[in-house]
Write a protein that binds this DNA or RNA. Structure first.
Lengths: 214, 214
DNA sequence: CGGACTATTGAGAGCTTTCAAGTTGAGTGG
DNA sequence: CCACTCAACTTGAAAGCTCTCAATAGTCCG
């Protein structure tokens, strides 16, 4: 079986130290996940790290009352899986067809030295999420989300949104309807354009960043 | 980047107490900070870690439009100030009179190995804040905040709140007036009692945790 | 061409914010 | 010890947002 590699997206983070660092300390196995398939489930035993080769992964969690929230999206070059102890407190699912390498940290002495920068990168993602969620109004949150997404996609004005609105809502802490409404408001104000449901073109960086105010 | 490490719970695990980890890689100097004095400012050069001996520290940040947000509170045993950049993106201030040790990471080869578990702890702390902020309604956020604070204070029912309402509001992403109002609502429902402004006694754990639903 | 899923849009209800008083409490000087 | 002063906290009312529920449109498959 063969699969098509989306080299367009791989370019995004290929320059990051992720690949090089991991080479020194891992046994690697590449798997391809179909859209909406599970990488690991909430409650399953943990132990590996995962690095995204291409595609997009959502990491999230269900609350005791059944609501869902998404703590992050991972694109090519991003590492996930350390948000857990012995058991996964979170789930991870492919948003679209994605290639993911499972990584077992080796016993080598220099393993921590190689993991450290990767973890710092993950901390950065968490920090950015905090900044997004801290926005009082939803348009701030969505604006910050779009800016960060663009930043992670080489600063392109045409931002890919592979995930459904419900994922975005669960990431931003608002309802999916509100996500849709705010996007419309941005469109009406000429800040963005939506060629299709899963892409957003940023037309007015100035006003978008004014909304972020991070 | 700044984050906090919850070493409070590490005391349980004799195998890797925080003190020992830090002892291996630090030069230590104790300073006492008066209430509302600055440990470091946003924009200042970074380079040290700090461990709280006693008191309480708030770590936060100002947005470009002048609003403030608080990313965390540090109590005795917590570590903060671990900057990945050359410059502090955050500020740190003593909430009340506090004793703080400045820690310079050494050049030893095993430094990364000692820092790694601390970073993992910091990831956990970030997750907790995310969980708090993700709550849609404010009573969820405040309930989660009180539960986590109690957990960090040996599970006592009488929780100390050394920080002003404005700090809590900036941490939870709501106005200080709303913090006050929600506290009143909890009091009226018999969930908590407030012996004085800076302490809260949890009377009904069941209902408080139902509100969290994390 | 259906059928199922996702996205958009609308209307009323419920919450939170902002602005603006009051009230309490800690610290200071008489 | 008491009154004064300032800052923090509480409370109220109106305005603005977001949520929920519900209906309509759009899209991707078979």
């Amino acid at each position: 079986m063969t699969f098509q590699v989306d080299t367009h997206r791989m370019g995004v983070n290929i320059a990051s130290p992720a690949g090089a660092s991991l080479a020194g300390l891992t046994h690697v196995a590449l798997s391809v996940y179909q859209a909406n398939s599970e990488v690991y489930g909430q409650g399953e035993p943990a132990g590996s790290l995962y690095i995204v080769e291409f595609g997009c992964v959502r990491v999230g969690r269900f609350t005791s009352d059944g609501r869902r929230y998404v703590v992050g999206f991972c694109f090519a070059g991003d590492v996930f899986g350390w948000e857990s102890d012995v058991v996964h407190d979170f789930f991870a699912e492919a948003v679209e067809i994605s290639g993911i390498r499972a990584v077992r940290p080796g016993r080598a002495n220099d393993a921590p030295a190689k993991l450290l920068p990767l973890m710092l990168k993950s901390l950065r993602r968490f920090e950015q999420h905090l900044i997004v969620l801290r926005g009082t109004r939803v348009d701030e949150r969505l604006a910050a989300f779009l800016c960060q997404l663009s930043e992670r996609q080489d600063g392109e004005s045409l931002v890919q949104l592979p995930m459904p609105r419900s994922d975005i809502g669960d990431y931003l802490g608002v309802s999916l309807e509100t996500v849709s409404r705010i996007l419309r408001r941005f469109k009406d104000r000429g800040i963005i354009r939506t060629p299709d449901t899963h892409s957003v073109e940023i037309l007015d960086w100035q006003r978008l960043q004014n909304l972020c105010s991070a």
